[in-house]
Nucleic acid binder design. Structure first.
Lengths: 347, 347
DNA sequence: CTGAAAGCGCTTACAG
DNA sequence: CTGAAAGCGCTTACAG
């Protein structure tokens, strides 16, 4: 019953067939479908019955061509296989689906040009709106896109018509992580930062520095090494830290993936976490709870961020002002942090 | 120049405008675009110039309505945020993009009904084909879908018109993992299996049993506990193993995520990997190389599986018989396995 | 409240 | 080799 194929003339049921069966015009069916105008109850009834009976599902492709709406939202994620963005995508998919929308995911690969191409692809597919998870596009580019279709962007603060931004407080997150270490008594805290060209990374580092200074601990640039947000680069950053010959009792890594890499590097040097070195990450990936030891980190509610951005998009689409507000960063203390040992650790 | 918007009359450039500028009919432009018929070189030139000049990009939506092709492929993944399928999605996206196709990802949530709904959504969006990553749909359902549009499916062996399947040898994988342990001298090998309703899991378990028996080690059902493929369930499975009061010197977990959970469970019991218990996983997730200790596992080339299935789809679409062949399982020995200690470990 | 008509941007038989 | 015409399945002014 449900599947229409082969039921009548082969091929999916069309709006025309519904109209015919209900004895009304196609326009009327369309209006009922879209709630575009008031329709008499009698016809409404008839149409709804016909729809149910035939198992009619509107063709979004035709809809897109005729009305300009495709009921699909483009989502630019940086990497379709990112453990971090994956959760956001799931949140987006769930929220959108509940409103009858589909998500079209494309990967921007942390590259402004690639992202611009993504936008082109998405527009050519006539998506009704675009959600950009962080990304490298300039504010100006975003503003321009927003003139054409609704845009929701995370990872920055930006106000413009047709655009809604959801910014996570990375500075506060970095501060929280560092402060946790400070509270435990650490003073020599190294930092595995992200790249300079990555706003999140810059802000987390800023929070690190602010916490240090607020606690009266001098900021030492040599205690900070850059990374590229992957496990591998966490290990490499650790090597650099040792080359720099600075002593430290704790490390703040600007994301969990680098923290995992650092953990392995520490292990390879026979340094124990947290006995010899405490370690805090950032993001609270699902894997953080299962690392050895389970990792202290700053929770970024990615799944919810996904839901919120989708909700904001739905609001924008409905002509309402979005009210979604980004949750605050939260420190999750697990087993990778503890007070420093009395003796300074290996350099 | 590149972005057409606002260049002429506002809105994207249409095929009509290209035709007008090139002094030919719309049909001709369409034919050149699709290579549907032979066109004189002169007109071809003119049209190509006009396209370049105007920055024309065909509207896939209109294309889909008129010609039935949307240049998009539906991909049913079990979870958009799966660390495992993520890599496959990336491979699919890359391969498809290089051929001008886009992927439409939807999550089936390991549920046959949800998957059937996904197929409906995908068909209503007029995708040109569907790639199903494993999934729970019956062979019969798949065969039926394949009558309507090309289908590529992984995780099973199935021959049908319009359908291509890519099956990973999970039995061999399970055998490889278990044999690795056997070779190291283990005899008491526990198994954290997947669910009975999961074909991959069933086969990996089968391989485990086959390896044992080939080595003359009696198969003990009490050494096998079920899991649900997540970290959490790996920990729970470990608890069950201890409740069962069987002694073991090694564990084969049917996927890496459960192995991670088991590792944490072992750690909580102060059992060291690999000194007290050796552990082999399955999949070789990126995280496996960064677990503590780095985990021995059976490599499943997911990224390549993604590429291969996309390539098979492209072949199907082109009317060619796909030739993609699934790579063989491969054991990656890292640090989580070693010969058993002389003394039997804690039960 | 409701229908007939035009049109969204393409493709594809149908005729030259 | 190439054009005019019809049509894909809807939506949306335009008239009642």
């Amino acid at each position: 019953m449900k599947t229409p194929s082969g039921q009548r003339n082969g091929g999916p049921v069309t709006l025309q067939e519904v109209a015919a069966m209900a004895g009304v015009s196609a326009s009327t069916v369309s209006r009922i479908l879209n709630g575009t105008a008031v329709v008499s109850d009698a016809k409404k009834q008839a149409v709804e019955e016909a729809i149910a009976h035939l198992g009619f599902v509107p063709n979004p492709v035709a809809r897109g061509l005729a009305g300009g709406r495709t009921l699909s939202i483009g989502v630019i994620t940086q990497a379709i296989d990112s453990p971090f963005y994956g959760l956001a995508m799931r949140g987006i998919e769930e929220t959108l689906a509940s409103a009858g929308y589909s998500a079209l995911f494309v990967s921007g690969h942390w590259d402004a040009e690639a992202e611009a191409r993504c936008v082109d692809v998405l527009r050519s597919r006539r998506v009704d709106g675009i959600i950009i998870l962080t990304g490298r596009l300039s504010d100006t580019a975003l503003r321009n896109y927003a003139r054409e279709l609704p845009v929701v962007v995370t990872g920055r603060k930006l106000e413009a018509p047709g655009l809604y931004s959801l910014n996570f407080d990375n500075v506060e997150g970095g501060r929280l992580a560092t402060d946790h270490l400070l509270q435990l008594g650490h003073r020599r805290i190294a930092c595995i930062a992200g790249g300079d060209d990555h706003p999140d990374a810059v802000n987390r580092h800023r929070g690190y520095r602010a916490a240090l200074e607020a606690a009266g601990v001098a900021y030492d640039p040599k205690m900070v090494v850059p990374g590229r947000y992957f496990e591998q680069s966490g290990m490499e950053a650790l090597d650099r830290l040792f080359q720099l010959r600075r002593r430290f009792t704790a490390i703040f890594a600007a994301n969990d993936q680098m923290a995992f890499g650092a953990m392995l590097g520490l292990h390879r040097r026979s340094l124990r976490v947290p006995q010899d070195v405490s370690l805090v990450g950032f993001d609270d990936l699902p894997a953080a709870a299962y690392s050895l030891p389970p990792m202290s980190t700053v929770r970024q509610p990615v799944h919810e961020i996904g839901r919120l951005s989708a909700q904001a998009m739905l609001d924008l689409l409905a002509g309402k002002a979005p009210t979604a507000v980004m949750p605050e960063p939260e420190l999750i203390a697990r087993d990778s942090t503890q007070p420093p040992a009395a003796e300074p650790p290996a350099r």
